[in-house]
């Protein structure tokens, strides 16, 4: 039973950390965006204020069962995926369930939230939501292709489908996978542009034509809960990339409070650096139309992925 207690504690700790980091990153990005735009910008904790405000709205509107549970789906997807992703390599403080799931599971589980969101948005009956959802799903088909190519390349190259093993391989060999298969990394990086939905791939909720897209009818606690899920998700995506390509964080040989803190520090540095890629791209580009975005992903990100896969096989 001690083991179970530790696991629950670890799960809660992980969730809180992911939430806090995701929200803070969002705030920092808002601040940086403001600086780029010649502005002072909101404080870095602005997202927390927004969240508390949304949660303390006195009245809320729900559009039926799916509309009511849409945020629940997102939270389920985010926390479940978080549980199956190694945060720190071999650290006791974050003992997730990552030995019980693998990449394929994570790939599919990440869709769970989108599906829930899509269903919730669908039930509201707002045409903007439906159009936003079709755009989002169509674009997903676009960026999943290079992403999966990259992942398959990794899996084939190292004969494992477990993220933990991939981390361990990088730890033992001392070489990050970004160097051993740069093409796969590039393909995945381009896919990440679509995943984070910054410009030019933010057509899903393009305000110029769809108001807030799928979120059009969600406000108050629903929007707040979605925001929570979203920030956990952004942390998940970043951690996944770091685990897969940038050697992960943490050192299984050193266990203890200082090693953990150092590990978290490394993780934060790596994830933030990675996060800046789509953000930088987003600052300076208008958005693509849906079909342009899809074709973009099927263009040379996919070609890079194929090269990466061939590199991995031969």
């Amino acid at each position: 039973m001690e083991d179970l207690g530790l696991k629950i504690f670890g799960a809660i700790l992980t969730t809180i950390m992911a939430f806090a980091v995701g929200m803070t990153y969002g705030g920092i990005v808002r601040k940086l965006t403001a600086r780029v735009q010649n502005r002072f910008g909101p404080p870095f904790y602005q997202n927390f204020l927004d969240l508390v405000k949304l949660q303390s709205k006195k009245t809320n509107i729900a559009h039926g069962f799916m509309g009511h549970t849409a945020p629940v789906w997102i939270i389920i997807a985010s926390i479940t995926v978080l549980m199956f992703i190694p945060i720190l390599n071999g650290n006791l403080w974050f003992p997730n369930l990552n030995f019980h799931g693998d990449l394929i599971f994570i790939l599919y589980m990440m869709v769970f939230g989108s599906l829930g969101m899509a269903l919730g948005a669908g039930q509201t009956g707002n045409p903007n939501s439906a159009i936003g959802v079709t755009r989002g799903l169509s674009m997903m088909v676009g960026y999943e292709i290079p992403f999966v190519l990259a992942l398959v390349a990794l899996m084939v190259q190292y004969h494992t489908t477990s993220i933990q093993d991939l981390m361990q391989i990088q730890h033992e060999s001392g070489t990050w996978l970004i160097f051993s298969n740069p093409f796969a990394f590039l393909a995945a990086l381009f896919a990440s542009l679509g995943m984070f939905r910054y410009s030019p791939f933010d057509i899903v909720g393009a305000p110029a034509e769809l108001a807030s897209g799928p979120m059009s009818e969600f406000g108050g606690k629903y929007l707040g809960t979605m925001m929570t899920g979203g920030s956990i998700f952004s942390f998940i995506k970043l951690t996944l990339y770091v685990d897969l390509f940038l050697g992960g964080a943490g050192n299984p040989d050193h266990i203890g409070i200082w090693a953990t803190l150092a590990g978290i520090g490394v993780l934060l540095i790596k994830t933030f650096t990675l996060y800046m890629v789509p953000v930088f791209y987003g600052w300076v580009s208008p958005r693509y139309r849906t079909e342009q975005a899809i074709r973009y992903f099927w263009g040379w990100p996919t070609a890079l992925g194929i090269i990466g896969l061939i590199w991995a096989v031969y």
Partner: peptide, 22 residues
């Protein structure tokens, strides 16, 4: 809203639909 006066530093920002607006 934009660079010289920058209302966002007070947490003021636009919301697209009435459901999200204060």
């Amino acid at each position: 809203m934009t660079s010289r006066y920058d209302a966002e530093r007070f947490g003021i920002r636009g919301a697209a639909t009435p459901r999200q607006a204060d």
